[in-house]
Design a protein around this nucleic acid. Sequence first.
DNA 1: TAACATTAAATGTATCTACACATATTTGTA
DNA 2: TACAAATATGTGTAGATACATTTAATGTTA
Lengths: 153, 153
Amino acid sequence: MRIEDEIKQPVFRNNFEKAIINLSYTAGWLEVRQAAAFRPYGLTLPQFNILRILRGQHPQPATVALLIDRMLDKTSNASRIVDRLEEKQLVTRCVCPVNRRAVDIRITDAGLELLGRIEAEDILNPVRLGLGAFSADELHQLNELLDKMRSDN
Amino acid sequence: MRIEDEIKQPVFRNNFEKAIINLSYTAGWLEVRQAAAFRPYGLTLPQFNILRILRGQHPQPATVALLIDRMLDKTSNASRIVDRLEEKQLVTRCVCPVNRRAVDIRITDAGLELLGRIEAEDILNPVRLGLGAFSADELHQLNELLDKMRSDN
DNA sequence: TAACATTAAATGTATCTACACATATTTGTA
DNA sequence: TACAAATATGTGTAGATACATTTAATGTTA
C-alpha cells in the first residue's frame, strides 16, 4: 500500500518530506513485526542484538564499551539492557580483574541455547516477517539510497 | 558513508538483511536529528505531530480516537502525549458535552503560536537537517521501494 | 428496565531512548 | 607522592512504545 493511503494523508509538501515520512513509517512497521517475532522467546530486539554480540566474543568477555561500539544505536543504555539479560540469567557480569573500572560480560550456556533456538526458527527471515519480494537490483538500489540519505552534504 | 562502515560490520548474510538493518539505522539517524531540531522548543516529535493534527481540526476539537487515527504510530499512547501538552498549556482537554465518554482536545493560542514559530524556522527542511541531495527520480524510487517493503506478499 | 456488550479514555507495568550527572578506578603529570 | 584528568560504568529523570487492564458512559437486547 502506498504511504499516502497508509497514513490517510493524500498530499505531501514535496517528495522529500514524503520520503522522510515513508522512511520513519516503514522502519516502525518493520520494528513491530520484529518485536512480535521475539515475544515468544521473552526477548526484545535490543536484548537479542546484545546477545549476538556476546556470542561473537564468546568465550572471551565483552565490556559495556565494546557493546556500545558494536550496537546500532550508540546512545542506547547498554548497561540497563545487560541488567535485564542478567536477571534472566542469559549473561553474567563480573568486575574485570585487570581493570577494575571495567566489567566483563559473558553469555551463559542458557543464552547460547536460546540464541540457537531462535535462529533455528529463522524468525527474522524477510519472507516470514511478511516483507515484499525484491530483486537483487532493487536491494542494491535501496541500500544506495539509504546510504545517500545520511551523506550529509 | 556506507552502512558497512557505519556499524563496522563488513559482511551481511545477504542484501535483504543488509537493507533491513540499513533501514532501521537510517531511520534512527534521522530521528536523532529531528529530535535535536525540536529540543530548543521543548517539544518532542510525537508532541509536534499531535499539535499539527489539532491545528488541522482547529477551531473544532479532536478526540483521542481521532488523534490515534491520524498518527503515524497507531499503538503509541496519545493520552499521555496529550498529558504533556496539557501541562505545557499548549492544549486544553474537557469532557465532550454530547458524549461524556469522549474528551474534546483543542490547541490553545500558545500552541498555535509555538507551531507557527517552529515552522517559520523551517527546522525540518531536509538540507537543514543535513540530509543528502536527491534528484526527483531518486526520491520517487525511494518511495516506491519503501512502499514495496511493506507490501506483504 | 435490568443485564450485558461495546466504546472512549485513562492507568499500570515493563522496556527502551536520550541525556545529564555521579562514582570508582586508572593514568598522567607536576 | 599528590592530584587532576581521563576512563568505565552506573544512576536519575523525562518521554515514548507496547500491551493489558480498568473505569465510566453509552447501546442493545431479552
